[in-house]
Amino acid sequence: EEKRQVKQVAKEKLLEQSPNSKVQVRRVQKQGNTIRVELELRTNGKKENYTVEVERQGNTWTVKRITRT
């Protein structure tokens, strides 16, 4: 359940930055209360990979860091 929520948060964050792209989740890793989500962003056939680190704060998820990989 929490992985599902985190995927959603990570996707939304990337789509905010580039709204007309397609996002696909590649991998989800958990480390303590930080969850790392690896995503693939496609814009006009151009692929970019991103890693989004999401942290739990109380009962909400906040995006800590977005890295292009």
Rank of each mutant, 00 (worst) to 15 (best):
W61D: 00
T34P: 02
K30I: 15
E53G: 02
K7F: 13
S21Q: 02
N49M: 14
E12P: 01
V6Q: 03
A10I: 14
L14F: 04
K22E: 14
K64D: 02
V23M: 04
L14N: 01
E55L: 07
K22Y: 13
L39D: 00
K30R: 13
N20W: 02
E1F: 04
T69P: 04
V54Q: 00
R36P: 00
V52F: 02
K11E: 06
E12D: 14
R56P: 04
N59W: 07
Q17R: 12
Q29R: 14
K11G: 03
V63R: 00
E40F: 11
Q29V: 13
L15F: 04
K13I: 13
K64E: 03
I66A: 02
L39A: 08
G32T: 03
K46C: 08
E40G: 03
Q31H: 14
N59P: 11
N59G: 13
L41F: 03
G58V: 04
E55N: 04
L39C: 11
Y50L: 03
Q29C: 11
R26T: 12
E38N: 07
N44Q: 09
I35S: 06
V9H: 04
G58T: 03
T60E: 14
K46P: 03
V52N: 00
N20I: 04
V23Y: 01
K11A: 10
K3F: 15
K7Q: 14
E40I: 13
V37D: 00
K30N: 10
I66E: 00
S21A: 13
T43K: 10
N44C: 07
Q57Y: 13
I35G: 03
V63H: 00
V52G: 00
N20G: 14
Y50G: 00
K11M: 15
V9K: 06
K7G: 15
T34Y: 12
K13W: 07
T51V: 14
T60P: 01
T60S: 14
N20E: 07
Y50D: 00
Q29H: 14
V23K: 01
R65L: 09
V28E: 01
Q8C: 07
Q8F: 04
S21G: 13
L39E: 00
R4F: 09
V6N: 01
Q31T: 13
E2I: 12
V37Y: 02
Q8A: 11
T62P: 01
Q5N: 08
E38I: 13
K47D: 04
R26A: 04
K3C: 14
Q8V: 06
G45E: 07
N20P: 02
N59D: 13
T60I: 13
K11T: 11
T60Q: 14
R42H: 12
N33P: 08
Q8L: 07
K46Y: 12
G58S: 06
R26L: 15
Q5D: 09
R56T: 03
N49D: 07
T62M: 12
R65G: 07
G32W: 05
S21Y: 03
Q31G: 05
S21T: 04
E53Q: 06
Q31P: 01
E38H: 14
P19L: 03
V25H: 02
N33I: 06
Q8G: 05
R27G: 09
R36T: 12
I66G: 00
T51W: 12
T69S: 10
T51L: 12
K46S: 09
R36H: 13
R4H: 11
V25Q: 01
V28N: 01
K3M: 15
G58P: 02
T67R: 09
E16P: 02
N59E: 12
N49S: 11
R42W: 15
T60W: 14
E55C: 05
R68T: 04
K13T: 10
K47N: 08
L14K: 02
E40C: 07
E38Y: 15
W61G: 01
Q31I: 15
K47L: 13
Q8D: 09
E12T: 08
A10T: 03
T60G: 13
K22N: 09
T60D: 11
V54K: 00
N59V: 06
I66K: 01
E53D: 10
V52M: 05
K22W: 13
V54P: 00
E38R: 09
E48P: 00
L14T: 02
E48N: 04
E12V: 05
K64A: 11
R42K: 08
P19K: 04
N49P: 03
Q17Y: 13
N49L: 15
K30T: 14
V28H: 02
G45S: 09
T51Y: 10
G32V: 03
E2R: 05
G32A: 05
E16W: 03
E38T: 13
R36M: 14
K47I: 14
L14Y: 01
K64W: 04
E38F: 15
N20S: 11
R56C: 07
V28I: 13
L41E: 01
Q31W: 15
T51F: 09
G58R: 04
N20R: 07
R36G: 02
E12R: 11
R4T: 09
R4K: 12
S18A: 10
V52I: 09
R68N: 11
R4I: 04
R26H: 08
V28D: 01
V63S: 01
K11I: 15
Q57L: 12
L39I: 10
R4D: 12
Q17N: 09
T51K: 04
G32E: 05
T51A: 07
T67L: 13
Q24S: 14
E38M: 15
L41P: 00
N44K: 10
K3A: 14
T34C: 06
R68G: 03
L41G: 02
E40M: 11
K13Y: 13
V25F: 10
E1K: 12
E1T: 06
S18P: 01
P19C: 04
K3H: 14
K46M: 11
Q5T: 12
V52K: 00
R65D: 07
R68C: 05
R27Y: 10
R42L: 13
V9S: 02
K30G: 13
E12G: 06
V25S: 01
W61I: 05
K11S: 10
